Simulated assay, not measured.
Amino acid sequence: MARTILSRWTVQSAAGIAVVTLLSMGFGSWNPAAHQAPAQSAAAAQGGAKDGLCQEGFYGSPEKGCTDVNECASANGGCHKLASCKNTPGSRVCGECPPDFAGTGYVGCFDVNECPNGDCSDRIPTDAETAAAPVVTTPDDMKVEATSEAGAPATFTVTSTDEKDGKRAAYCLPRSGSSFPVGTTVVSCWASNTRGKLGRAAFTVTVTRPAF
């Protein structure tokens, strides 16, 4: 049976990176802290390894190396198309909206010239800070037998749903159908919603050598 993991949303802000703040358009205050992840851990600084596995936001294996997931490479990391996406260790940061646009890269950029009297407050999601992250559902940990010295391919299906947005696209690294080396590899999956939240889940693919 597939398992469902309610993953906490993380947006990591490394030292020296400016946190995006909501443009003051008269539509209430914005708390950027609600869209940040905890400070980078020592495990992340050492390549994402923790407790014998790659930690959240990383994929691979400690033995062969944990690689940071570049969320920005898929659907602009869930950031609005008019905002930049900056990859950070274990997460990403959405940039500011262009001039004359209200909102943030997390919840959307709205042209003030298209809003009544330049007031776009009714278009900004009011539950952005309290909304839950999407739920990412992965298969159980998988075991496959090696088909060559290089390992074996593994295919899987991952889905995501959001309480506000419904079905959401889910992404994973390594991707389904990839060739996995002998040993255990962490597959890191994620999805985003229109409130700027990232949902995450992970599972492992273990490739074993044939028994002789």
Rank of each mutant, 00 (worst) to 15 (best):
G151A: 06
A102Y: 04
G105M: 01
D165H: 08
A49K: 06
A154T: 12
K143A: 10
R175K: 15
P181D: 05
G52Q: 00
D68L: 04
K64W: 03
K86G: 13
A132I: 01
N87Q: 14
A202T: 13
G166H: 06
G77S: 03
W30G: 15
Q40V: 15
T138W: 00
Q55G: 10
A131M: 05
G103S: 01
K167F: 04
S178M: 02
S61D: 06
A133T: 02
R209L: 05
F203D: 03
A201N: 15
F58H: 10
A191C: 12
A202W: 05
P38V: 04
P153G: 04
F212D: 13
S121E: 03
N31E: 01
T21G: 07
E145T: 15
Y106G: 05
R3S: 14
V11I: 09
V186C: 01
E145P: 04
S188R: 08
G177S: 04
D51V: 00
L23H: 04
T161L: 02
E56R: 11
L22T: 09
A154D: 10
T67S: 11
S41M: 02
A152S: 15
W190R: 05
R8A: 13
T185W: 00
S160A: 15
Q46C: 04
P62C: 00
D119K: 08
S84R: 10
I124C: 04
W9I: 08
A152N: 12
F58L: 05
P89A: 01
K164N: 09
S84G: 14
L53N: 10
Q36S: 15
L53Y: 10
C189M: 11
V93E: 15
A102E: 05
V182W: 03
G177R: 12
T88E: 00
K164Q: 08
A169D: 13
V93F: 09
G95W: 00
L173I: 02
L53M: 13
V182D: 07
D111P: 08
S61H: 06
A146H: 10
E96K: 14
A45E: 06
L6Y: 09
A33R: 07
C109F: 01
K164H: 07
G26A: 05
T88A: 01
A15K: 13
A202C: 05
R3C: 13
Y59V: 09
A18K: 15
D140H: 09
S24G: 12
D140T: 12
G196V: 02
V187H: 02
K164V: 14
S91K: 06
P125V: 07
Y106L: 15
S160T: 13
V136D: 07
K86D: 13
D141M: 06
Y171A: 11
G78P: 14
A73I: 09
R195Q: 03
A44S: 08
P125C: 06
A202I: 04
D162R: 12
F58C: 03
A14D: 13
A128R: 09
C54F: 00
D119I: 08
S179D: 15
A34G: 07
P32Y: 00
E56Y: 02
A33K: 12
G196H: 08
E149S: 14
M142N: 06
A211H: 09
L173V: 12
G47A: 05
A170V: 08
G183N: 01
A39S: 14
P62H: 07
D100P: 09
P153Y: 12
S192M: 11
